[in-house]
Simulated assay, not measured.
Amino acid sequence: MQELIGHDTEFKIITNKFKKNNLHSSIIIHGPKGIGKRTFINNLVLNAFNDKYDGKSLAHHTNLFLNLSHPNIKILKREADKKTKKITSSITIDQIRNIRNFLNESSSIIDLPKIIIIDSADDFNLNSANAFLKTLEEPSNNTYIFLISHKISSLLPTIRSRCLKIKLNNHNYDNFKKIFINSIDNLKEDEIKFLSEITNGCPGDSISLYDDNIFDLFDLTIKCLTLRNITNDHINLTNILSKFDNDQFKNYLYILKSTLLIINKFKLNYYDSNKIISNKISNLQKISTIITIKNIIDRLEFLSINENDLFDYNLDKRIFMLNFLNC
């Protein structure tokens, strides 16, 4: 189980309320994707175990939870369709029905509350959201529902209004570094600083970017952004990207959009240069003098208009990137 780093104040608020038996039955944990919201909830559960058990009993309940087999805890997330075997685009009504059945069943461990973790509530469609709303309207005794949301505004107002809302903010650099090196420990300091800045302090996103080796393509991408005509560098970059699967390419587009937004902030003098901590971000400040605001906006608009079609219709990634670079 990953150690919780950061979010100390929010953790204390919830654990104190839980110990005093005045914690709201439904809690939305929200904030940017990749900052550790699921880790936060997992540690809340383990903390509850620590308060209740010790020795072999503690190890038993912990192992059940870590193996996703604890009888008092259910995880709700998108699942594979039984026919197509592909992950569904949203949480289904059938899954909501299963949760309601779980809440109505007698608990096999009566000295522990039932806990539901929804990862994430952003994956509700309108039908499943309305079905789940009925669960919130009729809360069960000794039950806690944790909803993870990366974008709380996407949730139904009626769901938001029935929950305690706890926001987790982006990590400062020190905490970001501690989390990152727990997973990856062979990076240089400046590379860690760069990932912290490009993801705005989200270690989950940074680990994903590093795992996909997108970091190595950054310098080549920046070079291509500054060249007006298609060159061998453009061809080389697009050929590499054409071999990416969809998840890898989405990660690449994430860092590409973040880069363009940072350059635009430099153009508009919105970026606090006193906070620049990596050499690569410093280099973006220099590049901002070469690229025009129109060119930045045109490329961001291209991504906004065409990105969904790229994945929905499985379009050619190489052609997509050549058209983007030619904006």
Rank of each mutant, 00 (worst) to 15 (best):
H24I: 08
T9K: 13
E10T: 06
H60M: 10
I99V: 12
A59Q: 13
L64Y: 03
I41G: 09
D8C: 00
I27T: 09
F102Q: 14
I109S: 01
F11C: 01
S57V: 02
I116R: 00
G6L: 02
K83Y: 12
G55L: 08
N47K: 15
N67F: 03
K82D: 09
T15Y: 07
S108G: 07
N16M: 06
I110D: 05
K83I: 09
T62P: 00
E105P: 00
I117R: 11
I91L: 10
E105S: 10
T84N: 10
G36M: 09
I99Q: 11
N72W: 01
Q95P: 08
S107C: 05
K37D: 12
H7Y: 03
H30K: 15
I41V: 15
I117H: 07
L76W: 13
K86G: 00
S108T: 12
P32L: 07
H60K: 14
F102R: 14
G34M: 06
H60F: 08
D54Y: 11
A48S: 11
K12Y: 09
D8V: 05
D54I: 04
I118F: 01
L4M: 05
I87C: 09
F40R: 12
T92S: 14
K77E: 15
K82V: 11
K74T: 13
D81L: 14
I5K: 01
K85C: 05
K83H: 08
G31C: 03
H30V: 11
D51L: 06
R38T: 14
T39L: 06
H30W: 10
D51M: 10
R100V: 06
